[in-house]
Design a protein around this nucleic acid. Structure first.
Lengths: 107, 107
DNA sequence: ACAAAATTTAAGCATTCACTTAACTATTTG
DNA sequence: CAAATAGTTAAGTGAATGCTTAAATTTTGT
């Protein structure tokens, strides 16, 4: 019962550009699906499915409000991503420093 | 000619746990494929394919060295991820602050 | 009670994905 | 040169993905 549900993975959830855009939109506050879906050229069920995936990843939560469902951003799982990627920050800093030095020395 | 090749997307590239593990491994320096593949219970072609995807995303580069190919980490594209996720940091900070306050007030 | 509105569920479909095994291409070494 | 080593390319497969349309479901307004 209840497989680990690989699709609950945060990295997988943010891999899709539409889902990232949905999260971006939710930063301005909780919203009903129709409003959330407005800028996307995609059917409502498609958006609904994306929202479920985000829900499974713990990135959004929903709350019933009459006949609409308000979706709200929960950014906490993104910390996983932040933590993982932060381990590379010193590396690209090195890279960019090297580039800077190169440009200075070869004007 | 030459579509944007959606698979060149960094978010897509790091969505797979094996590929993230490969990148993690490459932080300790450039390595030939066989060495890189060692901890994974997966055929060599599978690793080779993952490496190509990482290559297309610009996250690794390769260099021939005799009969082996050395793969090297290029973390720069990860800045995209870092930048995107950083826009959420203030949000989860709020969330965690709220949790802290709650725990203080309900001991 | 009835129709409209907001959203989800269901079912289907084409594409992409992550993998496999088998065959191929270098390169080195005996 | 032949055998071994390192890796890729090719072809195939099952499962997952992202979407669609059509049919529920639930709530509201008349």
């Amino acid at each position: 019962m209840s497989r680990p549900t690989a699709s609950a993975d945060v990295f997988q959830a943010i891999a899709d550009p539409t889902r990232r855009a949905i999260l971006d939109r939710l930063r301005s506050g909780e919203q009903p699906v129709k409003q959330l879906a407005e800028p996307f050229e995609m059917s409502l069920p498609a958006i609904s499915q994306h929202l479920q995936i985000l829900c499974n990843a713990g990135l959004v939560s929903q709350q019933k409000a009459g006949r609409q469902r308000l979706y709200r951003l929960n950014p906490v799982p993104l910390q996983q991503v932040s933590q993982w990627v932060s381990r590379y920050e010193s590396f690209w800093q090195q890279k960019l420093d090297a580039l800077g030095t190169y440009l200075e020395e070869n004007p």
